[in-house]
Simulated assay, not measured.
Amino acid sequence: MEVSDKREEAVRRILNGFSPQDYSLPEDFVLTKLTGMKGCGCKVPREILLELLKTFGSEVVVDNDAVGIGLDSCVVPLRHKGLNLVQTTDFFYPLVDDPYIMGRITCANVLSDLYAMGVVDCDNMLMLLGVAVDLNEKERDTIVSQFIQGFKDAADLAETQVRGGQTVRCPWLLLGGVATSVVSNEELIRVDRAEPGDVLVITKPIGGQAVVNSYEWLKKKDTKIEELGLEPAKIVRAFQQTCEQMARLNRNAARLLHKYKAHSSTDVTGFGILGHADNLARAQQNRVDFVIEKLPIIEYAEEVANKMISAGGEGFRLFKGTSAETSGGLLIALAPENVEGFIREIEELDGFPAWVVGKVVARDESSSEIPNKAYISEVFTTECVKSRIHQN
């Protein structure tokens, strides 16, 4: 299958939907029954994780040319002058029922940690797979082969290869991988150089957790659909958009980090836009805060969250900026003069827009003992993002 065909294959399968009978699976088979959690929503809460990581005895995230615990990938200067090892690992549970699309999403999510550091080319990938013990042989062989194919097709689009990994039996279906690259100093983006006046840009909208869960309610004929007055057709469209963007690589964004001289970047996943912005803010050399002023939200996710809040829930904490995303976009700090060009070019390359979501501000000099942070300003707007997957 040619590269262009592999791009089209993901969209075609998303729009057609997954039919278990096409793979000789039971009509009622759903991949997500093999887990109690979904995607990056399985992460240990950020506050707990930060406390546990104190065991390592260092709060320094970026130390000269090395990047350690707390950001997307480790960056380790090698003994060979001018070269660095960049490596990341990630794994989670299924959040869609098509194992092929789940393979694409998993690979894209793993690679995204490299792309957030400005690494465009991945040298090697490993695949991690925990096969649920509840699967019979037919289900196991079908799911694993489709997942591997999806993972491989995404790796092919990234122009890298899968050269190994680990497969074990698990109580739940577990999906993940490792991405590794050896790069020169020039191939990296220093992610700790945000300056006051920088503009924050994100390359994919948020709201995936609300969409995936509402789609799950729809499949299971959950009473929440009627109780909240949700519209099935709109849920399906939102789910298709969410699948497309989760399966889409952040590679073009990584290239543009260099062209437009990004000062800082991270990818938005399980801790939500605010959680990852806060991680990034804490790593900055300058005394700065990241202020989130605007939340671009996937079509219909805003309405789902609002109706849940009206019914007494939290709306997946979407408007608080901590709703979990899986294989989300890059959050980038750019000099103001570079924003327009970046946004224009990423839309030309990916076919989907990016958004200005906030700014970098100087910290109050009197708060010397308080680390840099990110926060959502009291007044912010949300916007429903219309998907182009149905137009392309």
Rank of each mutant, 00 (worst) to 15 (best):
88 T>D: 11
225 I>V: 04
145 S>F: 06
192 D>C: 11
327 S>E: 05
58 S>N: 07
222 D>M: 05
2 E>S: 15
270 G>Y: 04
50 L>T: 07
128 L>N: 10
240 Q>I: 10
368 S>W: 06
18 F>E: 10
197 G>V: 11
309 I>F: 11
320 K>N: 05
321 G>Y: 02
256 L>P: 09
49 L>N: 01
10 A>K: 08
71 L>W: 00
18 F>V: 03
78 L>G: 12
258 H>I: 12
65 D>E: 02
267 D>S: 06
69 I>N: 13
27 E>V: 11
156 D>R: 15
160 T>K: 09
186 E>S: 07
175 L>K: 02
258 H>Q: 04
210 A>Y: 03
199 V>G: 04
198 D>N: 15
379 V>D: 15
101 I>R: 13
314 E>K: 09
56 F>M: 12
203 T>V: 03
380 F>L: 15
193 R>E: 14
239 F>S: 14
97 D>R: 09
342 F>K: 05
361 V>Q: 05
72 D>H: 03
264 S>H: 02
128 L>V: 14
323 S>D: 06
300 Y>V: 06
338 N>C: 03
72 D>V: 04
177 G>P: 15
104 R>V: 14
234 K>C: 11
339 V>M: 01
9 E>Y: 14
224 K>F: 07
91 F>L: 05
129 L>K: 09
285 Q>L: 06
65 D>F: 01
371 P>S: 13
97 D>P: 06
195 E>M: 05
391 Q>D: 09
296 P>H: 05
322 T>R: 10
6 K>G: 01
20 P>F: 00
78 L>Q: 08
1 M>Y: 03
314 E>N: 03
357 V>D: 12
374 A>P: 10
38 K>A: 12
385 V>A: 11
177 G>A: 08
13 R>L: 03
42 C>F: 07
84 N>T: 02
173 L>I: 10
119 V>P: 02
331 L>T: 00
242 T>H: 14
97 D>K: 09
238 A>N: 14
135 L>E: 07
211 V>A: 09
128 L>E: 13
72 D>G: 01
107 C>H: 09
47 E>W: 08
348 E>R: 13
34 L>M: 11
50 L>C: 09
134 D>T: 00
88 T>I: 00
351 G>M: 06
215 Y>P: 12
86 V>K: 08
349 L>M: 14
307 K>D: 12
101 I>T: 15
385 V>H: 09
83 L>R: 14
21 Q>A: 09
73 S>K: 08
99 P>F: 00
250 N>I: 07
269 T>V: 01
278 D>M: 07
299 E>V: 04
161 Q>C: 08
308 M>S: 02
135 L>A: 07
198 D>V: 02
201 V>Y: 00
177 G>H: 08
80 H>R: 14
67 V>I: 15
299 E>M: 14
78 L>R: 12
191 V>P: 02
354 A>V: 02
68 G>I: 12
258 H>P: 15
219 K>C: 03
357 V>K: 13
